[in-house]
Design a protein around this nucleic acid. Structure first.
Length: 599
RNA sequence: GGGGCGGUAGCUCAAUUGGUUAGAGUUCCGGACUGUCGAUCCGGUGGUUGCGGGUUCGAGUCCCGUCCGCCUCGCCA
């Protein structure tokens, strides 16, 4: 009875009369009487009702069926027959198996999580500790299946496009820029360390130099930073690189992949993806990954604000790159109570803003909130925003970057509060023309906005090569050939045309304040490679976990990873990380300065 | 590193200003019932209230510390 003739999702009316064997977990048990018991058996493929009927078989069978527990593993032999009443909720609902022989293949003790009980889903902590029970749930099985389909689709699609799947090392060297590395001590070379890859970036570029032309890898990446709801330290990307291409070619191939995924998994036909420049995204949405499923765009009203005596506005405008921006919330007056908008002021303080001045449109004028301060510009403001009676107007007043950040985040919160996000909408877009560099006030130096291997756009090349490291304005204004793919306000992919000239790469290092010596020390292999005939190339990496989150309709990245980690980087099931023997450490020439918890 | 929320029966939750023996549903155990599909009905087992201190006549409840989980800021080229 440990083998089966059919899965639990397979039987239909056409099987009626056949003798079958099914195996699986007990999903539910319904005891109608001492003579009639129903047991639903579940496997990855579905659920089938087993019936134990004393009248049609023997009194022993219902008795035996009463002894099975939820989540026991059973095998049953019987005959398929039509049900007296069809259960339309499941695909096998037209039939049942009249069991003639039952074997309990494996008993369970009372489990902390019951796959059929979605109503009383345990806390996530319990789900993670007993992950094998959580993954039995049909919802989780569905996600696992979706994830498989997408990786298979990636391999099929890119294979059709001439890509080769090539593996790059997990034990590699630490990269100085970017996120914190996970480190692995070398046993053979005392005092030396490997790093786990944050991305196979340099390897895939070198594969282009090696003439591989088109590369694909579905690879694990590691970044030792605190996680979020949509971010894990260990994650998977669909990583691609192509030679002899410009931006258009790359975007075309990648857009084709995204469209195919959505089409085959969700049956959704996406139109061509719109493009927006980084600057426009920041101006209109205050964020580099705008959610365009709703309006609530940011409108610059600095010139009008300058005409008022409102201190919050005038003081902001005195700042370097100070701006005043406004968001019109249609119909906000009725829904956004004082309590809610007070909450908004608190909310934006997390992003460095002072608060959110508010007013409401009443007829052709403004009332409440800061109405009396903006009275002189009321008409112009209403015109500029296209505001109507019953709208609320929210303001941000600060430096461009703080104001954008605060209103950009606020915009998303307001959309949720106002229930403005349409169900089932998929808004893809490419964000292009990112700046090459970002100046960091704290350290007083430039950082690569994407990564230091991103090429300046062709038109910028001359200006870039001639840039003086002290000329902040010029450097900040140089636009790169990088691009991000955004879906419903979440970044699902990012890439760029890379630098394939050694002199250009050296210039990037110079502007980043990395000396020749340091660059040689850390990137000699890349610089060497670029000097031996590197083809023009570019690529992208999709965040697989994020793709699956969208396709599965979850906002929790742990739901799409079979064995995810908690916020403290723990695997609650296998209890990693954990202590190791002194002997192991000795072999690795490592001594810890910390005392591990012993609880 | 900072802020917020949470931890009570195997699981999901409740417990009034600090006050009797910490309750309910479910799982599990026993019983009734021949067409259920969240079966129903009756009865029962089940508790170091995360952990450690403290205040108090009395602490699940208040205070301090600590651990764990979630959300978030910083961080994530």
């Amino acid at each position: 009875m440990r083998t089966r003739t059919h899965t639990a999702g397979q039987l239909r009316e056409e099987h009626i009369g056949q003798e079958v064997r099914l195996c699986g977990w007990v999903h539910a048990r319904r005891e109608q009487s001492a003579e009639l018991v129903f047991v639903d058996v579940r496997d990855r493929y579905g659920i089938t009702q087993l019936v134990f009927d004393a009248e049609d078989t023997s009194p022993e069978l219902p008795k035996q069926a009463k002894g099975v527990h939820l989540e026991d593993v059973v095998g049953a032999k019987g005959v398929v027959r039509a049900r007296e009443r069809v259960n339309k909720k499941i695909p096998t609902g037209g039939v049942e198996v009249l069991v003639t022989e039952l074997e309990v293949l494996s008993r369970t003790v009372s489990p902390p999580l019951i796959a059929s009980d979605e109503q009383n889903l345990p806390a996530e902590e319990t789900r993670l500790k007993y992950r094998y029970l959580d993954l039995r749930r049909p919802k989780m099985q569905e996600i696992i299946r979706t994830r498989h389909r997408v990786t298979k689709l990636a391999r099929d699609y890119f294979d059709e496009q001439g890509f080769l799947e090539i593996e790059t090392p997990c034990l590699t060297r630490s990269t100085p820029e970017g996120a914190r590395d996970y480190l692995v001590p070398s046993r053979q070379q005392p005092g030396m360390w490997y790093a786990l890859p944050q991305s196979p970036q340099i390897f895939k570029q070198i594969l282009m130099v090696a003439g591989c032309d088109r590369y694909l890898q579905i690879c694990r990446c590691f970044r030792d930073e605190d996680p979020r709801a949509d971010r894990q330290a260990e994650f998977t990307q669909i990583d691609c690189e192509l030679s002899f291409v410009d931006r258009e070619t790359v975007l075309g191939v990648m857009e084709g992949f995204a469209k195919r995924v959505w089409n085959e998994v969700l049956g959704y036909e996406a139109g061509d993806f719109p493009r927006i420049t980084y600057k426009e995204a920041m101006d209109r949405f205050g964020i580099d990954r705008p959610d365009t499923r709703y309006g609530l765009e940011l409108v610059d009203v600095s010139d009008l604000a300058a005409k008022t005596d409102f201190k919050v506005f005038t003081e902001a405008l005195e700042k370097d790159r100070g701006v005043v921006k406004a968001i019109r919330v249609p119909g906000g007056a009725a829904k956004l109570t004082r309590k809610i908008t007070d909450g908004y002021s608190k909310f934006v303080q997390d992003f460095g803003a002072g608060g959110v001045p508010v007013t409401k449109v009443a007829g052709v004028t403004l009332e409440a909130g800061i109405a009396k301060f903006v009275e002189p510009i009321a008409g112009e403001l209403i015109d500029r925003l296209g505001a109507k009676d019953g709208d609320t107007i929210l303001f941000g007043a600060d430096t461009y970057s703080t104001c954008s950040k605060a209103l950009g985040e606020l915009r998303q919160r307001v959309a949720r509060d106002m229930e403005m996000i349409p169900e089932g909408a998929w808004n893809f877009l490419w964000v292009i023309d990112f700046p090459m560099f970002e100046f960091d006030e704290e350290t007083g130096r430039f950082y690569a906005m994407h990564h230091p291997f991103t090429a300046p756009s062709d038109e910028e090349l001359e200006r870039f090569m001639g840039a003086d490291p002290s000329d902040r304005e010029t450097i900040e204004s140089i636009v790169s050939d990088g691009y991000d793919l955004v879906c419903n306000g979440s970044e699902i992919g990012g890439g760029s045309i890379r630098i394939h000239r050694q002199d250009v790469q050296k210039k990037v290092f110079e502007l980043l304040g990395i000396s020749d010596e340091e660059a040689r020390l850390k990137f000699s292999f890349l610089l060497d490679a670029l000097s031996f005939g590197a083809p023009p190339h570019g690529g992208i990496a999709f965040g697989l976990d994020r793709l699956i989150m969208h396709l599965a309709g979850t906002d929790n990245i742990r739901d799409v990873i079979a064995f995810p980690k908690t916020q403290t980087g723990a695997d609650l099931m296998c209890e990693a990380p954990n202590v190791v023997d002194e002997e192991q450490l000795g072999e690795l020439h490592v001594k810890s300065t910390a005392r591990a918890r012993t609880d």
